[in-house]
Design a protein around this nucleic acid. Sequence first.
DNA 1: TACGAGCTACCTGTATATAGCTAAAGTCGC
DNA 2: GCGACTTTAGCTATATACAGGTAGCTCGTA
Lengths: 234, 234
Amino acid sequence: MNTAANTKRPPEPERRETQAERFERIYKVIRERISVLEYGPGTVLNEGLLSEEFDVSRTPIRSVLQRLNYEGLVTTRNGIGTIVTEVDVKTFKDIYALRMRLAEDLGVLSPILPTREMIDKLDDLLARARKLREGPPDYKAYARLCNAVHEQQLELTENKILAEINDLLYYRAARIWLAFLPNIDWEEAMKILENEIADTARALEMGDMQGVGNVRRQHLYIILKTIGRYLVGV
Amino acid sequence: MNTAANTKRPPEPERRETQAERFERIYKVIRERISVLEYGPGTVLNEGLLSEEFDVSRTPIRSVLQRLNYEGLVTTRNGIGTIVTEVDVKTFKDIYALRMRLAEDLGVLSPILPTREMIDKLDDLLARARKLREGPPDYKAYARLCNAVHEQQLELTENKILAEINDLLYYRAARIWLAFLPNIDWEEAMKILENEIADTARALEMGDMQGVGNVRRQHLYIILKTIGRYLVGV
DNA sequence: TACGAGCTACCTGTATATAGCTAAAGTCGC
DNA sequence: GCGACTTTAGCTATATACAGGTAGCTCGTA
């Protein structure tokens, strides 16, 4: 496991970090590593090493790992360690089926009024995606881009509960798509992502929130079908 | 806070309870107390007292309370205690809006094949409801009946993720309906519940899973409207 | 009399030694 | 050589003393 120094305490802050802030910082770092497959399914995380890396005792690390456990990203085994979860085919399908339904809800439950700023952010993400396509496959950068698109999409509804559930399900299963990516053409993968970003931005420009939800749903459907065709073909 | 002796270690079991089983037992007890308003919104729970009640140290109690914290049922304040959450009107509305959507999904995403056993269970619940209506208002019994109906409804889908999310949202907000109940006629409250159980059983008998989902949705809509009319009328 | 500082009691957050669990390695008997 | 049993090393789960945070009370001062 990497022990990047940048995750240690930040330089002497003007105000000391609260417990809740520290928790959130560590939680976000570990969750991110899982989501970009830095900790792939089956990886064994170790409380002791993490406590050293983040310069805290085991106790707050345990709190973070417990939360990730409740969220289905890891499972903790006494005497063994904390293992990043695999996601079996049925669970993956269940999650994506529900995510497709929830994607539609984004355009229905308390949708926001689109702003220029939001559309600009999507344009930035699209430029990022195009630049990524020109280079060799970079799956980690792809994952980070997907995370950024996802975070942007959470802003699309004022129903905070809907956003929360979307977030939960995203981090539980999207990494499986990422692990699958090397099985398909890089250009194809990038096209799928670019289309989603571009179509979302276009729907936002038109103020068509239901269209936004439908774009998201279509994207998830494509992922499900792509993986499904591969599994059937094998 | 009650210190009912029946929550202490069960009589000498043939096999010692595992850590996971004990966690689940304590978690379920506390969540149940919150859901039937034994710990109403604003109640301050105390790690030390709970550890005495359940005959464990503070550590496993902390784990349970942390989970309830992540699930939105309590919020923990350093130096104060663990407070059972209020649910503000917007959040309640957001949750119920999403629950109504998810109720429809019950009839769409991997619905089960109805069994005689399941219908029998609903008939039992209906008989229980009718008996309850004949007596004086008993809000705790009502809550327990709602919990039982809810647990039964989780069995209606084979999409485990959908069930999980339904469960999460149920426990987060249904207690608010319970707290509201004294503001309406007991007969009316019981009628709403009885109608839901009876209509669900009827739809199951006809094998109409979409109908089941629609019953549930209608029930949630009635709750939302009843509370809304009361708030507007005040 | 009102306000601010300090103190007290009590709470949660943390560190850490110990208890309990697990898998792998080692040993012994057949 | 193989299987059963024991030991070892290393992991998480726990208990508990201490650290840190909070609210309420008391006292001194303006």
